[in-house]
Design a protein around this nucleic acid. Structure first.
Lengths: 116, 116
DNA sequence: AGGCATGCTTACATAGATGTTAGTTGCTTA
DNA sequence: TAAGCAACTAACATCTATGTAAGCATGCCT
């Protein structure tokens, strides 16, 4: 597997490419929430409250740019925005679920408590 | 999903936990190579030559510490070391393969050339 | 004695991801 | 008039992963 370029970034493996698109601290948590229904910015913020406004906004912008999420602005007062998952985004859910399940498996081996 | 601690690190999701264990630039490339047969340090270095000695050594040490890889020292002259995958490591291969396949899928959608 | 090979380790440097704090716009409500 | 909400955005700070360059231990070979 040789390397390749995309948007001026160099990648060496397909896994690197995936994690460029849906890696980082917040992308998968966001996609996971959007898989069932659209969410507003402030709802996401409340649910993933460890993320700052800045990071949430930046992350959503990247997900929209890469086609995993769609953004709709509702001109009510005050203005609301609604984020929903796209078909491309839906196709990422399987791998997120697999990572999540494998994570629980590892946590169990390591005797980590969790409430789900 | 509340947060949890392990080895003084804080995690918020099972996916974060997985990527702490097998994420980063070299862990999956190493596990992928070890899945079929043991490799020596210098062989891994030659194959993943974008990794510096320092990173390769550091990464292998973490994989051994976390139980994904076993290290054997062969007292020949000069000393050789052989790294092999453990049963725990083998169980990580399925998710690596899934990530890899999804990566190829995304690359195809984005018209990225690759020779495999 | 000096050099070479293997498998490292140490010290220092850099870049990118994320955090913190504050500000903005347009309208509403007290 | 002041304050508040929603959804950001900008400036600056920090932290962590990774990179670079050099050194080190052992024992052989010339």
């Amino acid at each position: 597997m040789p390397d390749f370029l995309k948007d001026k970034k160099r990648f060496y493996t397909p896994v690197e490419y995936v994690l460029d698109k849906i890696g980082g601290l917040y992308k998968m948590p966001i996609l996971w929430r959007l898989k069932d229904k659209p969410w507003r910015f402030s709802e996401l913020k409340k649910s993933i409250d460890r993320a700052s406004d800045r990071m949430l906004s930046k992350t959503l912008k990247e997900l929209v740019f890469d086609g995993f999420v769609a953004k709709e602005i509702i001109p009510e007062v005050p203005v609301k925005t609604v984020y929903s998952i796209t078909e491309k985004g839906q196709r990422s859910i399987a791998i997120i679920m697999a990572l999540r399940n494998y994570g629980f498996e590892l946590m169990k081996e390591d005797n980590i408590e969790h409430n789900d």
